[in-house]
Amino acid sequence: MSLENPLWQYALTLYSRPGVEQCCLQLQDQGAVVNRLLFACWLASQGIKLDHDRLHQSGNRWQPEVTRPLRAVRFRVREQLAALPEAEACYRALRQAELVAEQLELMLLWQDGQSWLPDSEVGAALFRHNLQQALGEPYNRVSGVLLLQLQSAAIALLDDD
């Protein structure tokens, strides 16, 4: 396994596109797991249809057990910065730890996806399907406009290659 894998590189590239970071953060605020959305887009770019059950059967517990708790602690520290500016170094360290945890999470997702074979034609319908599968239950609670924005950015990334 490698932290520097094709999914990580794809995620960095997609996330750096105009508007994608803000879009992903808003989706995260609405209950989406951003790394799963990025994984869904990467799979779609490879012609691989994501199956919600298969994704959840992988046993990948990193996000709920490590990444999410780190984020929660970072948010709590951030809330204290006005009253305790000395906590800035702690906040920065937590932000860096969260980034590394997200990279590890993407590595685990990439590892899970290695055995999945292309089975679909790459296109908007596949991206839409994969995003819906990655979201699962929160699909009805997140903004369709934001999902479309992410989907459009991912498709535009394909056109740039």
Rank of each mutant, 00 (worst) to 15 (best):
N130A: 10
I155N: 06
Q149I: 04
A125I: 08
K49M: 07
K49W: 01
L70E: 01
V34N: 10
Y91Q: 14
L158G: 08
P64E: 00
Q9H: 09
L14I: 09
P138G: 09
L94S: 08
T13Y: 09
F75Y: 05
L14H: 05
W116D: 04
W116Y: 02
R17C: 15
D53V: 05
A101T: 04
Q57V: 03
E137H: 09
R68V: 03
L7H: 05
G123M: 08
R68T: 02
D159Q: 12
L50C: 13
A83L: 01
D119Q: 06
D53Q: 09
L27P: 15
V20A: 15
L25M: 14
L12K: 12
A32I: 04
L148T: 09
Y10S: 10
L126R: 11
R54A: 14
A125D: 13
Y139V: 15
A125C: 13
I48T: 05
L126F: 08
F127H: 10
W8P: 11
P85A: 01
Q151W: 01
Q57C: 15
Q30K: 09
V34W: 03
L81P: 07
W62F: 12
R68L: 07
S16F: 02
R78D: 01
H129R: 07
G19H: 02
C41D: 05
G113Q: 00
R61G: 10
D161E: 10
L81T: 00
V33I: 13
T67R: 13
E86A: 15
G144D: 06
L94C: 10
Q111M: 06
S45W: 02
L70K: 02
G113A: 05
D159W: 05
C90K: 04
D161P: 14
A82P: 00
P6G: 02
V34L: 12
A134G: 11
S143A: 13
I48C: 14
S16H: 08
C24F: 00
S143G: 13
A101W: 05
Q114T: 02
M107N: 11
V66A: 07
L157S: 08
W62E: 07
F39Q: 11
A101F: 06
L43P: 13
E137L: 13
V145M: 13
P118T: 00
Q46T: 00
L104Q: 11
E88Q: 14
Q63M: 10
P138E: 00
P6V: 02
Q133R: 07
G136S: 11
E102C: 13
A72W: 01
S152G: 12
N130R: 05
H52A: 13
S45M: 06
L126E: 08
L158W: 02
L106T: 07
V122F: 04
Q28P: 12
W62T: 05
L99N: 03
D112Q: 11
E79I: 00
Q80N: 02
A153G: 11
L131M: 13
L126P: 15
Y91W: 11
G19Y: 01
G59S: 11
S120L: 07
A134H: 05
